[in-house]
Design a protein around this nucleic acid. Structure first.
Length: 825
RNA sequence: GCCGAAGUGGCGGAAUUGGCAGACGCACACGACUCAAAAUCGUGCGCCCUCCGGGCAUGUGGGUUCAACUCCCACCUUCGGCACCA
């Protein structure tokens, strides 16, 4: 008898797998490929439970798919650029590259110790020149296509990180990385024109059938498409000045009684110049501009408006309406100006009430009459148009169309779609990133670095004496260069790229990670892409997943790939909690993969993390639950350890006792359940419980069987197949067990077991007898019993017969194999 | 405010197509083994009652149905996304 020693077993097999280069993948056009990918990590230093969870899920799918016969690619790499490396560099006085390299080494060791089946030949590191060379190349591709541009704009600035941020990287007014408040600054920055792809990013969500609905909805909200009209108002006092507004309700145009401009609107200064309102208005404008994004958006109640003294002309009826400026109108959305229709917009209604602006109803709800004098809230619903000369009587839907069309003919507006999505701000005023490959020449302007000069290398000697790693602007050797066009003195762009650029295409690089001629070679990317199964945290629902989709579409348009969507199927895994809250140092509830591996082994850790909850739900870490899983593996170990095939010298036992048939059925039930649960439902928790049930059945079988039967071919087969089912979840124990059962090869090279439907059949079934829908008894009948026989048998049951005394059966319902329900009066 | 997800024993969770609610695991209790403990094996384990047997139970209140965790209506709570979005 031997004890289960996970450390010994796991280290032994890990070494062997590595020596045999076991998980290497290669293109094979005769075989169907399967690309399983976990979001690659930022090399922060060490793995946490979230990592362990995502890798466990991915590894189960990779191993399962291999056994199912697919040509599986399962790569891993490092999202290695980013600010933490700079902070750590200052703190520890160590070069960011060194810090990153050391972390990668350590984390890679940890990943290997978890037994994940990665093809390490394909490892990529986004901070290596071999990789970022192609990130730069892709930037230049976008530049040439007009998708990368530089402009001065009002942008998000994080004071703590000392850099700008993309809109997606601001969460509730705070920096996504350091949670300090984000300010607005007017700066000249590089952008990618993701808005050109807004419609495709939105509509192609419909093609992603195997994406979680919630992720698609988040992207949909983020893109924020709304249809409506753009309408041009003129300023009465300055007939040459136009104010354009965007509205989703052009049908209410006759109901406009005022107009509001954003304080930043370029027209504001002109409107009030030299008037008695000038001082007051400009003071208000500068006060609003000083407020941060949070201040300005948090005070929901205080919508402040200020009359400019000027009037606008409503293009539909020539009426003049007062022009106000208001703190609630955003320059960044629509046109920075809105028309006020108090009767049919609740916000306008309240605003009009506050500033005594007139209300005019122009839509009447069906079967009801509303008037401006009596209404207590706006009516934003459907109805027919009134007070709209020329359009009265139309439904408001027709009205939208007709009015928009009328304006279009008069050249005063037209149909328009507005998005909430903004262009992606990608330049960062930081050192540790891929340099933007642009050169500024006084003579030639902005000149892209020629492809042959890529990569533009990041200088690696870093000044670590201050409290910041200096940005590239502080390296004269880097900055000063020659213009590729005229050869004259020129300066390099000193901003680096957002790290999200590097992670927007890494999954394609994995298909040919050593390519020196292109970001990826055509044949490989066409064979392996798209990623069949992508797994990662929900926090990337809009960030990384939107950017990666955008990149893929750009590459598709450039004819570089044949897929328009990178990830066919997405699994957004839940978070790992303990004692009801997120694991964190300050709460002192952190459990690390290291300590679990040390105490119980990787197999136990993997098993628990998969067993404790379905993958997409949050998981509550429970130390005793881990013990339970460890106990389960020990139970398996004992089965294998006790099994002595050399005793199977009893061929006279054909294995057809009742217990034998039952055991065989348990095996096939388990095969079916585990297969369906992994493949179709991703319910690893129930797949594992099915294996537990099988193991329980084997234990009962052993208890009720003679010794020779306990070592016979039936048990041999049952144990072997059980080990195959276990292989994706606990790969080391399964490998050891497989070898101890006397099989050659690796368990991970075996075919996934098939269940035989006839083995699932039973002769007799237990049927529930209900009276008026309540369970009143049970009976065992032949499985092929007819419905009539079922009812007959149920009525013949003693207890049921008693209950039926003096009652009349008015209806019977039978569900074959399950129940009989007698409806009585 | 809008959109979405969820709510089941002491706990994590299961119930896949409307058909026995609580699989599997944890915790707990009892028994076996042991000098003892651990480990292991076995048994029990939703709540209540008058314990034969019956009643009540899947956030709350209604409804549909022979039958509802599952479908419909209204509401409550928690979590997530978006939000002066015009």
């Amino acid at each position: 008898m031997t004890n289960y020693n996970p450390k010994k077993i796991e280290e032994y097999w890990q070494k062997k797998w590595e020596e045999d280069d076991f998980y290497r993948s290669a293109m094979d056009k005769d075989r169907e490929k399967y690309y399983v990918l976990e979001m690659f990590p930022y090399p922060s230093g060490k793995l946490h439970m979230g990592h362990m969870r995502v890798y466990s899920i991915g590894d189960v799918l990779a191993r399962f798919s291999r056994m199912r016969g697919y040509n599986v690619i399962h790569p891993m790499g490092w999202d290695a650029f980013g600010l933490p490396a700079e902070n750590a560099a200052i703190e520890n006085r160590v070069n960011p590259k060194e810090w990153t390299t050391k972390n990668i080494e350590h984390m890679k060791k940890q990943q290997k110790r978890l037994g994940a089946s990665y093809d390490w030949q394909r490892e990529v590191n986004t901070s290596s020149p071999e990789y970022y060379r192609w990130s730069q190349w892709l930037f230049l591709l976008m530049y040439k296509k007009g998708l990368a541009y530089k402009k001065k704009a009002s942008v998000n600035w994080c004071n703590r990180c000392e850099t700008v941020l993309a809109n997606e990287q601001v969460e509730k007014g705070l920096c996504w990385r350091c949670s300090s408040p984000v300010e607005t600054r007017d700066l000249e920055q590089w952008f990618l024109k993701i808005t050109d792809y807004a419609d495709r990013l939105l509509y192609d969500l419909d093609t992603l059938e195997d994406w979680p609905e919630r992720v698609k909805i988040m992207q949909q909200n983020w893109i924020g498409r709304s249809e409506g009209a753009e309408i041009t108002f003129r300023v009465k006092e300055f007939p040459d000045e136009e104010i354009r507004v965007f509205t989703t309700r052009p049908d209410t145009l006759f109901g406009v009684t005022y107009m509001v401009l954003a304080p930043e609107h370029p027209l504001v200064e002109n409107l009030v110049r030299g008037t008695d309102k000038e001082e007051e208005v400009l003071a208000f404008v500068s006060q609003v501009r000083k407020e941060s994004e949070i201040e300005r958006t948090s005070e929901e109640s205080s919508k402040i408006g200020l009359f400019t003294g000027r009037y606008a002309i409503n293009p539909i009826n020539g009426e003049k309406v007062p022009i106000l400026i208001g703190n609630y109108v955003l320059m960044a959305y629509g046109t920075g100006a809105v028309m006020g229709v108090p009767a049919h917009d609740q916000r306008d209604f309240l605003f009009a009430g506050k500033y005594n602006l007139p209300i005019r109803t122009v839509i009447q709800p069906p079967g009801e009459k509303i008037t401006a004098e009596t209404m207590t809230e706006a009516y934003p619903g459907e109805g027919h148009m009134v007070n709209s000369p020329g359009f009265d009587g139309l439904s408001n839907k027709e009205g939208m169309r007709e009015i928009t069309e009328h304006l279009r003919k008069e050249n005063l507006g037209g149909f328009r779609i507005t998005y909430r999505l903004r262009d992606w701000l990608i330049s960062r005023q930081r050192y540790w990133g891929a340099p933007i490959p642009i050169i500024y020449c006084d003579k030639c302007g902005n000149v892209p670095v020629p492809e042959s000069d890529l990569p533009v290398k990041l200088p690696l000697e870093v000044e670590l004496s201050g409290n910041r790693v200096p940005s590239l602007a502080h390296y004269p050797d880097f900055v000063n260069t020659r213009c590729p066009t005229c050869g004259g003195p020129a300066r390099r762009e000193t901003d680096t790229m957002d790290t999200f650029i590097c992670s927007s295409w890494y999954f394609m690089r994995f298909t040919s990670p050593h390519s020196e001629k292109a970001p990826f070679d055509r044949e490989s990317v066409d064979y392996w892409m798209p990623v069949d199964q992508y797994i990662g945290g929900i926090e990337h629902a809009v960030l990384h997943l939107l950017y990666a989709r955008f990149f893929t579409k750009v590459l598709y348009d450039a004819g570089l790939v044949k897929v328009e969507e990178p990830f066919s199927r997405l699994l957004a895994q839940g978070m790992v909690y303990k004692d009801g809250s997120k694991m964190s140092k300050s709460r002192g509830n952190v459990v690390t993969p290291d300590e679990i591996v040390k105490k119980y082994g990787a197999d136990t850790g993997r098993l628990f993390i998969l067993f404790a909850a379905p993958p997409e739900k949050d998981l509550d870490w429970n130390d005793q639950g881990v013990e339970g899983c460890h106990r389960f593996l020990r139970r398996i170990w004992r089965l294998i350890d006790d099994f002595q095939p050399e005793l199977k010298s009893t061929p006279d036992h054909p294995g057809n006792r009742e217990e034998d048939v039952a055991l065989e059925r348990s095996l096939h039930v388990a095969i079916k359940k585990v297969t369906v649960d992994i493949q179709e439902r991703f319910n690893f928790n129930t797949a594992i419980s099915a294996i537990m049930e099988l193991v329980n059945s084997i234990y009962s079988y052993r208890q009720s069987s003679p010794a020779e039967q306990q070592n016979g071919p039936l048990l041999n087969e049952t144990l072997s197949k059980m080990v195959l089912l276990l292989a994706p979840f606990a790969p080391h124990l399964a490998e050891e067990a497989w070898s101890r059962l006397g099989h050659g090869d690796s368990v991970h090279q075996q075919s996934w077991p098939q269940y035989e439907p006839e083995k699932l059949q039973v002769d007799e079934v237990e049927i529930v007898i209900q009276v008026n829908g309540k369970v009143r008894g049970r009976m065992t009948v032949a499985a092929n019993c007819s419905e009539e026989e079922l009812v007959e048998a149920a009525r013949g049951n003693d207890r049921i017969d008693q209950l039926l005394q003096g009652k009349k059966v008015v209806k019977t319902i039978t569900v074959p194999g399950r129940l009989v329900n007698l409806v009585v009066r």
